[in-house]
Amino acid sequence: MNPGLKLLLVMAIALEISFTQSLIVNVILIGVSFIYILFNRVTFKALIGLIFWPLFPALGLFVSQWLYGSAGIHFAWILFTRIYAYVFLGATFTLTSSITNLALTLEQDFRLPSKFAYGVLAAFNLMPKINEEVQIIKTSALMRGEALHFWSPKLYFKAILSSIQWSQNLAEAMTSHGFVEDQGRTHYRVIKITRMDWVWFIGLFGIVQVLLFFIRY
């Protein structure tokens, strides 16, 4: 499915289940997402992570609602499954779509300014470097006679300085590679939103509406 439409679908459904209260629909969404992810061959490790990490916030919500809430255990289960539904819905997007394709479709089909599409992409490609950078900043501060911890404002101050610096260099690099804002570009890989994409999008969205309408438990 087209990554742009997929993102839209996932966000729309996630928004909807925030306002509705159906345990069964939550479970169905988790189940369907899970199967979809399995079919897309993700690593075992990523799968375990998906199940394990949300456990803490989900359990936390569950327990506090169950013990202290007034809406009872049914609502506690809804909250619990809602967290997992968010995570699994999100994963159907993040684990199976390439950010490059997303940028391409945002530019070509959703008609977003190319500056935005490629800006997002470039920022995303820089992400792994941020971890590294934080480590470097900590070390550098030590050498300058200061110990920075993860709560030190100075750490973030310098991290922001560095990213401003990066983005400036990046803008220069993109320009020198021929990129000009708001100018036409050719497209080596054309990404189209096909009729099938629309069928899936409307179909899946419709099914969720029907489920939410009929299944109130």
Binding site: Y118, H177, H187
Partner: peptide, 22 residues
């Protein structure tokens, strides 16, 4: 800090698309 894209091939494609190459 000379590259906008993730891989070598993507960067080269990006460059050529910018230059309106067929």
């Amino acid at each position: 800090q000379q590259f906008a894209m993730d891989t070598v091939i993507h960067e080269l494609t990006f460059v050529l698309e910018n230059m309106l190459v067929d």
